[in-house]
Write a protein that binds this DNA or RNA. Structure first.
Ligand SMILES: [Mn+2]
Ligand SMILES: [Mn+2]
Ligand SMILES: [Zn+2]
Ligand SMILES: [Zn+2]
Lengths: 126, 126
DNA sequence: TATAATTTGCAAGTGACTTGCAAATTATAA
DNA sequence: TTATAATTTGCAAGTCACTTGCAAATTATA
């Protein structure tokens, strides 16, 4: 593990919620080139240390977000006001997904789910 | 409705599955400029005639897909082999989403779900 | 320590849109 | 119908989130 990769992994570990590549590039802009940050993310995901997903939000556009890898598949809520994530816990869609798969004869290998809206903190401030 | 907008809407109507902006640009490349196609899509979605979502597939990257607007919210399966969509029917996640929302005190205003894998036709050809 | 393999920074390239602007269409008024 | 105003279009350039080529800098192995 090089310094850049170690620092990127540490930042994601500390965040405890999905972090976008752009956020990491900003955080490390005085230390590492964006290309290095992107390459570190690819390396860490390839090595199984990170998971990622793509999310679109009106304000920030379409970006890939990274979390520490976990064996258990989780889903997230994204607040459109403060842009923080709330952990929705382990996936509860397996039965429904299996059912859909069966109904249509599909070999479903993965699914993407996320919810958006306003988090409790932001709602209080409205 | 201008000619361009009418043609874009017709193409999506005939497709009966989500169509990407890129596919439409290709289809109309001899008739309309990509900027016109994109503007027609924005116009039609703004007027409530179309719905759209963003999906990432390894082969085609991240693109926005368009379907005719429907009051009932549906979800789709995307085949990673032939890149066609299968309708998974009306959303069955409302109860689970309401439960998550309640548990965390979130005001969930929308959710995104899609499944990927191999469709029956492609599986047969393997 | 010499040498080979890997990683990094920088600059340029990509792909999916988005935007400024002037010309072409279309709509409304006279 | 014709003058005038509003909207839409094509084209070129711009933006944004990455991605890639390449030579210099690090790091690993002999
Ligand atoms: Mn956001
Ligand atoms: Mn695809
Ligand atoms: Zn919030
Ligand atoms: Zn298929």
């Amino acid at each position: 593990m090089t310094k850049a990769r170690t620092h990127v992994l540490e930042a994601i570990t500390q965040a405890k919620e999905p972090v976008s590549a752009r956020q990491l590039c900003e955080k490390f802009q005085s230390d590492y080139d964006p290309a290095t940050v992107y390459r570190a993310l690819h390396y860490l995901e390839e090595k199984g240390r990170l998971d990622s997903f793509i999310l679109h939000c009106a304000e920030h556009g379409t970006e890939r977000y990274y979390v520490l890898h976990s064996e258990e598949h989780r889903h997230w809520f994204h607040c459109e006001r403060c842009h923080r994530f709330t952990d929705l816990g382990l996936c509860r869609f397996d039965d429904l997904v299996a059912q859909m798969s069966l109904e249509k004869g599909l070999a479903i290998t993965s699914h993407t789910f996320y919810a958006t809206g306003i988090c409790p903190e932001c709602r209080r401030k409205m």
